[in-house]
Simulated assay, not measured.
Amino acid sequence: MSRSHEPHQSFFPFRNPFRMLSPKGSHLSKKYLLQLNTFEETLAERLRKLNTKDKNDILSLSWMKSAMESLCNTHNDIKDLITELELPVSDWDEKWIDVYLDISVNLLDICIAFSSELSRLNQGNLLLQCVLHNLKSAPSNVFIRASSSLDSWRQHINSKNPRVENCCTILDKLVASLDLPKVKNSAKGKVLMRAMYGVKVQTVFICSVFAAAFSGSERKLFHVPVSEKYKWAQDFSDLQSNINGEIRNIFSSGGVKVLKELEVVETAAKKLYPMIQDGVDLVEVAEAFQNSVSDLGRGTEKLLQGLDLLSKEVDGFFQIVLTGRDALLGNLRSNGAVSETMLEGNVA
């Protein structure tokens, strides 16, 4: 795995692995251009769909689910493109392979960090379920237990997840890998490098938004400038400006600390907390009390559903990265392209 003190490296910082794939001076054929155009146009369409005009969608679990689903589809597309290009793994440079495996490990680490945060938020829902269960009972002593559970939930939600906090370091490495290598003699290499750049840009952007959402800090956001020569460049720039700009506005105005669905639950909990803590006369505030309990119940259910759906998408992305990594290792072993010692040293 990369170490934070190592200098930034491009994705292909060493000898071009595609140098031997075609004669010197090769140009993109119509076939390769069609494959590249199809990939870039599909990516542009995905980016447009993520560029929501409804500000309430930003930092919501539903938008984040769509973003992760979009990212999964793009990573699947690059796998299909590699298959279509029929790039022989045996010609890849060992040092490039090492860098590629290192980047895949970084992506797996990010997935693990996001999954751990989603699991932590789900654990908080168990405390909310205890609150709601106790509030259905009549004896006053259950309000004491409900108040205690609500206190525990607030402390749990406001705690920091070290894995999410460390995402910035990992994202720094991925941003440093965005530089495109120079591919002079391989038409297939040119297609793959250009397509993989789009994959990496989308990956860095979405992962940085997730890190900001889970940490409640705009410092986790990254701004990635993209050349206009890419078909998806304008759509990405519009998406990045809209989402990052709105997140910064939300945080600067003291808005959402983490997720929109979680903010709804926190608001309901704040209204309910004084009623069960101070032992107010529930007869006098019966309607307000029931409304607050109902709001908390609905908010908790929506939060639970959203976390569950997003967790599945993050797990799916983890599997896509892992299977792609395993497939590369399998191909290398079957082709005898590199030593077993090198492969074993790179296994996560």
Rank of each mutant, 00 (worst) to 15 (best):
S4V: 09
H8V: 01
F12Y: 11
P13F: 03
N16V: 02
N16S: 14
R19Q: 14
Y32F: 02
F39E: 06
R48H: 12
K49G: 01
L50F: 10
L50W: 11
M64T: 06
S70V: 05
T74M: 10
H75D: 09
N76F: 08
L85M: 07
L85Y: 09
L87I: 15
S104W: 07
N106G: 12
L108R: 13
L108A: 09
S119D: 13
L126F: 12
V142G: 00
V142I: 01
F143A: 14
R145F: 12
R145P: 02
A146Y: 05
S147A: 12
L150E: 05
N158C: 07
N161Q: 04
R163K: 13
K173G: 10
A176V: 05
P181Y: 03
V191R: 07
L192A: 13
R194G: 11
V201G: 11
F205M: 14
C207E: 10
V224I: 15
K231A: 15
K231S: 15
Q234V: 10
D238Y: 07
L239W: 03
Q240A: 11
N242Y: 06
G245A: 07
E246P: 00
S253W: 03
K260Y: 11
T267L: 09
A269V: 02
P274W: 04
I276Q: 09
D278P: 00
E287K: 06
S292P: 09
L296N: 09
L296G: 06
G297S: 15
V314L: 08
F317I: 02
I320W: 07
G324L: 09
L329R: 14
L332N: 12
V338R: 08
M342H: 12
M342E: 10
